[in-house]
Amino acid sequence: MKLSIRLLAAALPLLLAACVHKEAVKPQADYAVLLNEQRAREHLLAKTDHWVLQGKIGVSGEVNGKKDGGSGTLTWTQNGDNYEFVVRGPVGSKSFRLSVTPDGATLEGLDGGPLRSPDAESLVQSALGWRVPLRNLRAWVLGMRADSGPAELKFGADGLPVQLTQDGWNVNYPAWDTTRQPAVPSKVFADNPPYKVRLSVESWSFQ
C-alpha cells in the first residue's frame, strides 16, 4: 500500500506537467483558427459601407489638466467614405452634428459654428475637448482591425474578439449581436488613458 502511494506521488508531477503542456499547446492551435475566422469576418464586413447605427456614446478625458467629457444619444450614418455623427446630449450639455467627407469635416450646433477643418479628429478635439479615434473607429465599431497599422487580438470562448489593441488604443468588446451574420458588436469600449470612448449600440441598420 505504501509503495503504491509512493508511486502515485512520484507520478503525479509528471501527469500534471503533461496536462499543463497539453493546455499550453491547444490555445496556439485554436488562435490560428480563430484568426482565420476573423479574417473571413473582416473580408465580409469590409464591403459593408452603408449603414446606420443608433445608440449611446460617452467620452471622457482631460482638457488643460482637468477632467472633461460628455455623453448623449448617437446616430451614426455611414455612406461609403462619407459619414455623419448626430449627438444629442441631455439638457444643458453638448449636442452637435459632425459631417465628414474625404474633403474635410464640418461641425454644426455649437456656439460660433459651423466649424470646418480638413481633419475630423482635430476638429472634434479642439471644439469639444473630446479625443475620439474617428479614423479607426469605423473599423473598430464593426469589430474589425483598422488598416492604420499592426493590431493584436484576443478572442473569447465564443470565438469573437474580446479585445483589440491598435495605435495605442485598447478596444474591448463586452457584448456582440450574434443574431446577425457576420456578428457585429453591441458594445465597444476604447481606452487610451486618460481618454475613453464608450459606445452602446441599440440597433444596426445595414443597407
Rank of each mutant, 00 (worst) to 15 (best):
K154Q: 14
G159W: 08
L160P: 03
V141G: 00
P194S: 12
Q181M: 11
Y195V: 06
D167F: 05
M144P: 03
L128P: 08
R116K: 15
A157P: 11
Q163G: 03
A127W: 08
A139T: 06
P118K: 08
R138Q: 14
M144L: 12
Q125I: 06
P194G: 11
L115A: 10
P150H: 06
S122T: 15
L164G: 00
P194Y: 10
V188W: 00
A120P: 13
A183N: 13
G156D: 14
Q125K: 13
L115Y: 05
M144W: 01
S186T: 10
S117N: 15
P114C: 11
D191R: 01
R131N: 14
W130A: 03
T178K: 14
V124S: 02
A157D: 15
L160V: 10
T165A: 13
K187E: 06
R116S: 15
R116I: 14
P193R: 11
P182F: 12
W140C: 01
K154R: 14
P185A: 09
P118N: 11
V171C: 04
D111H: 06
P174C: 11
L115Q: 13
P150G: 08
Q166K: 05
P193F: 07
M144T: 01
A190D: 02
P161D: 04
P185C: 10
D111A: 14
A175R: 14
F189T: 00
G129L: 09
W140I: 03
Q163F: 01
R131M: 12
W176L: 07
S117K: 06
A139Q: 09
V162S: 07
A175Y: 06
N192Q: 15
L134G: 01
L115R: 07
W130P: 03
A120L: 11
Q166N: 09
P150Q: 07
P133A: 10
D167I: 09
A183I: 14
P161S: 07
A146L: 02
Y173F: 14
K154E: 15
W176Q: 02
P150W: 04
D111T: 12
V188H: 00
P161G: 05
D167A: 15
N136I: 00
L137H: 02
V162G: 03
D191F: 01
D119F: 08
P185K: 04
D147M: 04
W176H: 06
P150Y: 05
W169Q: 07
W176E: 04
R116P: 10
G143R: 03
L153T: 09
V124Y: 01
K154N: 10
V132H: 02
A127I: 12
P193T: 13
Q125P: 04
T165W: 02
F155Y: 13
N192V: 04
W130K: 03
P182L: 13
D119M: 09
W169F: 07
